[in-house]
Each structure stands twice: as C-alpha cells, then as structure tokens.
Amino acid sequence: MLAVAASVAAVDLSLKAWAQTGLPAGGFEAGPVDLRLAYNPGVAFSLAAGAPAAAVIAGTAVVTAALTALVWVSAPTATRLRLAAFAAVLGGAVANLTDRVGDGVVTDYLHSGWWPTFNLADTAIVIGAILLVLSSMGASRAAGKHEARR
C-alpha cells in the first residue's frame, strides 16, 4: 500500500514539474481535459486562498498526518479495496503537501473547462474517497447479512 501511495505521489510531482517547465503559456487542448498551468494557494476549490501560506501548509500537514495515522492503525485489518483507497488518498495528500511546502501553492495542470483546474493528486484523493465509501457500504452490507443469519 505504501509503495502505491509513494508511486501516486511521485507521478503527480513529476507531472507538476513537467507542467511548470513544459506547458506552453496558454496550455493546449488535449480532448475532454486540456493541459493548462495554474497555481492554487488555497485548498480544494481554492477555499482559503487568501489565508497565509504558512497556515494553509500547517493545516494541510495536520490533515495529512491524521490521515497517515488512520491508515497506519486501519491497514492491518483493511480489505484490498480499502487499502487501495488508503493508498490513493494518502499518495494524493502527500503529493499536494510536498508541492505546497516549496512555495505555498499547489500546481494544477488538468482543466476541463467546466471544473476548476486540478491535478493527478486531486484525482487520486477523489477516487480514493469514493473507494472508501464503496468499501464502507460493502462492509455494512456484509455486517447486515451476518446479523440476519443469527
């Protein structure tokens, strides 16, 4: 799980470095999702964009540390689906925190035209969160079936 999380973070950070040096000024169209360089000083959907960078970094670090602790405690008994979810969320969180520490902003490079510009780490976090919900629903159903058999 940690290897997958590290891979998610490494790929995203590599893409961010490429976007900063390789994307043309106006970006370019790439189908349903264009490549366009943007910087987000806030958190999701630019919330707290006006807050001091140190406060956003500290808040992001606290959330990432809490997530890491949750994963550490939960991983030994987690299903494969839940482990995949943990890996995606943790990898995305670590990548965005690592990117933010450098200059107080997160580098975004994927733009759909109807959604705020985002990055692979954001995508991993959202997919991981969806997988966590699905794994929780599966666990709830399994527990309900177990109770019904009693």
Results as ranks from 00 to 15, higher is better:
residue 3 A to V: 11
residue 48 A to R: 10
residue 117 T to W: 03
residue 115 W to S: 01
residue 54 A to Q: 11
residue 34 D to I: 00
residue 147 E to P: 00
residue 25 A to V: 15
residue 17 A to R: 09
residue 69 A to Y: 14
residue 64 T to Y: 08
residue 135 S to V: 02
residue 129 A to I: 12
residue 87 A to Y: 07
residue 123 T to S: 15
residue 101 V to Q: 08
residue 128 G to R: 12
residue 149 R to W: 05
residue 52 P to T: 03
residue 133 V to G: 08
residue 74 S to E: 10
residue 2 L to A: 05
residue 36 R to L: 13
residue 69 A to P: 04
residue 100 R to H: 08
residue 4 V to R: 00
residue 21 T to N: 07
residue 139 A to W: 05
residue 83 L to G: 09
residue 34 D to W: 09
residue 88 A to M: 15
residue 123 T to R: 09
residue 124 A to E: 00
residue 51 A to E: 12
residue 22 G to N: 06
residue 100 R to D: 04
residue 136 S to R: 06
residue 104 G to D: 03
residue 94 V to I: 15
residue 73 V to H: 12
residue 121 A to W: 03
residue 142 A to D: 10
residue 77 T to M: 06
residue 146 H to G: 05
residue 25 A to M: 05
residue 91 G to C: 05
residue 72 W to F: 14
residue 55 A to E: 08
residue 20 Q to H: 07
residue 129 A to R: 06
residue 76 P to A: 10
residue 7 S to T: 15
residue 148 A to T: 03
residue 26 G to L: 08
residue 84 A to T: 12
residue 70 L to F: 15
residue 27 G to W: 13
residue 47 L to P: 03
residue 61 A to S: 13
residue 13 L to K: 00
residue 131 L to P: 04
residue 28 F to T: 02
residue 73 V to I: 15
residue 30 A to C: 09
residue 13 L to E: 04
residue 127 I to R: 05
residue 26 G to K: 09
residue 90 L to Y: 00
residue 59 G to V: 11
residue 53 A to Y: 04
residue 99 D to G: 08
residue 48 A to P: 01
residue 51 A to F: 14
residue 108 D to N: 07
residue 61 A to E: 06
residue 32 P to I: 09
residue 103 D to K: 11
residue 129 A to G: 15
residue 142 A to M: 06
residue 115 W to T: 00
residue 3 A to P: 08
residue 79 T to D: 01
residue 26 G to T: 11
residue 26 G to H: 09
residue 75 A to D: 13
residue 103 D to V: 04
residue 3 A to M: 08
residue 109 Y to H: 05
residue 29 E to D: 14
residue 71 V to H: 12
residue 42 G to M: 08
residue 47 L to W: 14
residue 1 M to A: 14
residue 123 T to D: 00
residue 20 Q to R: 15
residue 8 V to H: 01
residue 130 I to T: 10
residue 64 T to F: 10
residue 143 A to H: 07
residue 45 F to I: 00
residue 139 A to H: 04
residue 59 G to F: 10
residue 64 T to P: 10
residue 19 A to H: 12
residue 139 A to P: 03
residue 14 S to E: 02
residue 124 A to H: 00
residue 17 A to D: 13
residue 54 A to R: 11
residue 136 S to I: 04
residue 30 A to R: 13
residue 141 R to M: 13
residue 24 P to N: 07
residue 82 R to T: 09
residue 65 A to W: 03
residue 141 R to H: 13
residue 119 N to I: 11
residue 130 I to E: 05
residue 103 D to H: 15
residue 65 A to C: 08
residue 26 G to C: 00
residue 32 P to A: 12
residue 115 W to Q: 00
residue 32 P to K: 05
residue 110 L to C: 02
residue 26 G to P: 05
residue 87 A to C: 04
residue 30 A to V: 01
residue 78 A to M: 04
residue 142 A to R: 14
residue 46 S to H: 06
residue 116 P to L: 04
residue 95 A to T: 01
residue 144 G to I: 01
residue 120 L to R: 04
residue 110 L to S: 03
